[in-house]
Simulated scan of single mutants.
Amino acid sequence: MAASGRGGLLVRVAADRSAALLERPRTARMVMGGREMAGWLWVTGEPDVDDLDGPELAGWVAEAVAVVETLPPKRVRSKPVRSERRAAGTSPPGRPRG
């Protein structure tokens, strides 16, 4: 779930729930760069997303959480410590080597 720069919320939803959720008021398929984003819906308030009442907002949060709970955990990648980066001749972007 995220706030949209155009106003409203971007909500990740289960693919099998998309059609039913599109029946809700102020809901549309998310389109970015002319492409429909599968599994994402755009929810607007009237006139602003702040106008969504508590139960309505809670329902959208529950939809998003239900999807996230089905995702596998992210792989944790350990970063080399600073001395290992120096020894390898690499440093974070924007920082001088040395």
Rank of each mutant, 00 (worst) to 15 (best):
S83A: 15
K74L: 13
R82T: 09
A62R: 15
V67H: 06
V67F: 11
E63Q: 15
R75Q: 12
P80R: 05
T70Q: 14
P73N: 03
A58K: 15
P73Y: 01
A66T: 13
A58S: 15
R75V: 14
V67C: 07
R75S: 05
E63M: 08
S83Y: 07
A64R: 03
V67W: 09
E56Q: 14
G59P: 01
A64I: 04
E69G: 09
R86P: 00
A64H: 14
V81I: 05
V61S: 05
P73T: 09
E84H: 09
V67E: 11
E84M: 05
V65Y: 09
R77C: 03
V81S: 04
A88I: 06
R75H: 12
K79W: 10
V68H: 15
P80V: 03
E84F: 03
T90M: 08
E69P: 00
P72Y: 01
K79C: 05
W60R: 03
T90C: 06
A62H: 11
P73F: 04
P80F: 02
A88W: 10
G89V: 00
E69T: 04
P73I: 02
R77F: 11
A87F: 01
A58N: 14
E63Y: 07
V61N: 04
A58V: 12
P73S: 09
R77P: 00
A87I: 00
S83T: 14
E56K: 04
V76P: 00
L57K: 06
V65H: 13
V76E: 08
R85F: 01
R75T: 13
